[in-house]
Nucleic acid binder design. Structure first.
Length: 573
RNA sequence: GCGGAUGUAGUGAAGGGGUUAUCACCUGAGGUUUCCAACCUCAUGUCACGGGUUCAAAUCCCGUCGUCCGCACCA
């Protein structure tokens, strides 16, 4: 069984190379691990998958697309926590050469190993003679920094500003929070999506498309008011059960509807549950088998530095269960971090009170003509200290402590009692954010993996890529039954016509037997094949063949194009 | 990053110190046939890269890079 699935994986990757879908990059220069090219078929497939993703989210009406730079100044990633998180130290064992994360070795010996320097880690490791987990020896080389981000310099000359290629696209959305807030006329909830490249300098990328050094990601940041109870309608998913694998601390795997999982607090936040459901919709839409999707909750120990709850959508394929989407409740972590790093006050949202809060207060107000001459340059501080008094003194004179720590004596003739009324109409708060983050390459891989079907035809294996029409890179194959008697030029005209139709792609294939050409089209997942034959010369009709069952009907090319663009082609059959 | 295996056309493989590197599929041209990988003829294209040994290296040796398996790593 294992051997069979391994052989299938090899046949699939061979086909992807041979047909120009996905290929190792820079191969004529020896190749680079973790970098891949998308060929003519793969490029379109990825484009369609991304478009499907963007359309899926923009259909909500309060989610917009943005695009931000991949080069990111260091300070942004220090604030976000990535510089700390992505710069771990590794210790190497002198005896067996095993490499381990230094902070993992000293776990339990220090409350927060993450923050230790190389020297501190080294001394804890040597002082405690920590044994090597694989060979037991307690001799270590000094910890070496391991930087998982690609670094670079902004500015061509020496002394430029340090920057990194972004390890995620999320920070771009946080940077744009003020603009988004204005765009949505100061009203939560709203979201922003971005799809683009991310970079991680993996130590040893393996498993093909699963771990890449440069990858396509698509992230959504959905900003919410933590005090508004979200109203999500889960009734749409009442007849689908999700496979849920909660943190073992909270219980074993269950199958249930997202609505019920939310009601029973297995998924702690309704918005997280709702995004899980919408994610499930997306994955199924682009051709992932529903039975091969499960949601796994992160355990406390593996939770990223920013998250308060996190569910991964995992997809099962040739490499087992693989995390393809992470849906994290990040709380206000990022906005708070950037606020405290920059002092910028625009990362908050305004929450009006239902009824304004009226605060009645009796205060002692300084009498300017007395306070001024009495305290001179300190008069301002005295006034503000008086206003800030919560409990009015019972008698005069009394001592008043100023902001600078000094004490002054206040006499009764310096002040008068005043009633003031303050009306607060609302407050500024840091929005919370729910972040679904999609690994496009991993999803794309599984779309191919699930679509790749090997059947038998006349004793030979026959390969069909059962891609959904929404993601299929090519919509139509145009095939003249033979390239003579004028069939060729009609076919080329039809091919041109289809290619010039918006959102449709056709490819022309005139060589080899008709059966061979159907097979070639099936192998890369072309859903429809038009064949031009002698009857076309008489009445203009062509045959259209459906990939998934080989069924054919006759119709006019223009009617077929209309049906394709309106997504009603199946009605012709 | 460590250990083991490995690198030959687009794909999959065989071979191997000595003239022009082999096979199948694939791809292209011509012929024939015409609706599901038919056939015939011809053609294109390959020894990962760099260095060394040698009269001669795709072959032996070393290094680099890549790939696979195991360990470790994987916000």
């Amino acid at each position: 069984m294992m051997r069979d699935s391994h052989a299938r994986l090899e046949r699939l990757t061979s086909m992807l190379r041979r047909r120009g879908v996905i290929l190792p990059a820079f191969e004529i220069h020896g190749g680079v691990a973790g970098l891949f090219d998308f060929g003519p078929i793969g490029g379109r497939l990825r484009r369609r998958l991304k478009n499907a993703w963007l359309e899926h989210w923009s259909s909500h009406g309060n989610i917009v697309e943005i695009d931000s730079p991949t080069i990111t100044p260091e300070s942004v990633l220090i604030a976000s926590g990535h510089v700390g998180e992505f710069n771990d130290y590794m210790s190497e064992c002198c005896a067996c050469n095993g490499a381990f994360r230094s902070d993992h070795l000293v776990e339990g010996l220090h409350p927060n190993p993450d923050i230790l320097t190389a020297e501190e880690l080294n001394s804890i490791i040597t002082d405690n003679s920590i044994p090597c987990p694989s060979c037991g020896t307690a001799e270590w080389k000094p910890p070496q920094p391991m930087n998982l981000m690609f670094d670079t310099q902004i500015g061509a000359m020496k002394g430029g500003r340090t920057a990194y290629m972004r390890p995620e696209t999320a920070q771009g959305m946080f940077m744009l929070f003020p603009a988004l807030y204005r765009h949505f006329r100061n009203r939560l909830p709203f979201g922003a999506v971005q799809s683009g490249k991310g970079y991680r300098n993996e130590i040893s990328p393996r498993q093909g498309m699963i771990r890449l050094r440069e990858f396509n990601m698509a992230e959504l940041e959905y900003f919410i008011d933590p005090e508004t109870k979200p109203a999500h309608d889960f009734s749409k998913w009442n007849d689908v059960t999700f496979s849920l694998v909660p943190d073992p601390e909270f219980g074993g795997p269950v199958e249930m509807t997202p609505g019920k999982a939310s009601d029973e607090n297995i998924i702690r936040h309704p918005t997280v549950a709702w995004f899980m459901a919408r994610t499930w919709d997306f994955l199924v839409d682009v051709g992932i088998h529903p039975s091969k999707i499960r949601f796994r909750q992160h355990e406390g120990t593996e939770m990223a530095h920013y998250a308060t709850d996190c569910w991964d959508a995992e997809i099962h394929g040739s490499y087992g269960w693989i995390e393809c989407v992470g849906i994290a409740h990040r709380g206000c972590y990022d906005l708070a971090a950037h606020e405290s790093a920059t002092g910028d006050k625009n990362l908050r949202a305004w929450r009006p009170y239902d009824t304004p809060k009226v605060v009645d207060k009796t205060i002692l107000a300084g009498i300017g003509s007395v306070i001024g001459p009495a305290f001179k340059s300190k008069a301002g501080m005295v006034n503000s200290a008086l206003e800030a008094l919560d409990d009015l003194p019972k008698s005069f004179p009394f001592k008043l402590i100023l902001d600078d720590g000094s004490t002054v004596t206040i006499e009764s003739e310096m002040v008068e009692e005043k009633h003031i009324q303050n009306t607060e109409h609302g407050e500024w708060f840091l929005p919370h954010v729910v972040e679904p983050a999609f690994g496009i390459d991993r999803i794309l891989w599984h779309v191919l993996d699930h679509a790749f079907e090997e059947t038998e035809k006349g004793g030979e294996t026959y390969t069909v890529l059962r891609l959904r029409p929404t993601v299929a890179p090519i919509d139509v194959a145009v095939l003249p039954l033979m390239e003579k008697d004028g069939l060729q030029s009609i076919s080329e005209d039809i091919h041109q016509l289809i290619c010039s139709t918006k959102n449709l792609a056709s490819y022309y294939d005139g060589s080899g037997s008709i059966g061979r050409r159907y097979a070639r089209a099936d192998e890369v997942g072309v859903p429809w094949a038009l064949t031009i034959d002698h009857e076309t010369l008489e009445n203009g009709t062509v045959t259209i063949r459906r990939r998934d069952d080989g069924k054919q009907i006759r119709s006019q090319p223009q009617d077929i194009i209309t049906a394709l663009t309106t997504n009603t082609i199946d009605e012709l059959f």
